[in-house]
Amino acid sequence: MPDLDDELMERYQKGDENAFTLLVRRHQQPLVNFIARFINDRDSAEDLAQETFIRIFKAAHRYKSEGAHFKTWMYHIASNLCKNELRNRGRRDRYRVDNVVNSGNDSDGDAEQIDLIGNAPANPAYQPEVALERKELQNAIQKAISELPEQYRLPLVLRDLQGLSYDEISEVLELRDGTTKSRINRARLMLKEKLKPFI
């Protein structure tokens, strides 16, 4: 049974431009959330999410709804873009470490990280202490996630933040079901240890 995304892709392939806009509207928020949480950088997340849609747009004529699901295809493209971005950052950082004398912990060049306190929405039932405590915990969780090795962080974000099923995650990451399950369990165990001071 074709889902709405597949139907929209089919419509777009037949020349309906609005169908693509609708696809973007449906997926922009989860995609930005996924990328921002995975690479821990809100600003680059928008850019990478747009790049994901551009790739989808360019490859749209090759898309076949029987072979893949739009959602997993989208996350697959986004994951690869994120991995490349992180690899390039790693190279840039190593280059800096190699060439900057007495650099120490240079934080000024790092990407802007997600500051949940700064991004807190206005709430009518606002309790400063409780809110601050919650924001601190959220910041700690984001930091702990960003410290996980990539191979564990990616399936964890897809599962616990994006709500994908194990099957979908296996499809996105091209892993066997057992590997996906054990990596997610391992990632959760690592997080439990990292969050020990808070939980």
Partner: peptide
């Protein structure tokens, strides 16, 4: 800890996302 992770707030795209795209 799993529940705390699952309850992290969703990050919203900026209003300029679609026009920029």
């Amino acid at each position: 800890s799993v529940k705390a992770v699952q309850q992290l707030p969703q990050i919203e795209p900026s209003p300029y996302f679609i026009p920029a795209l």
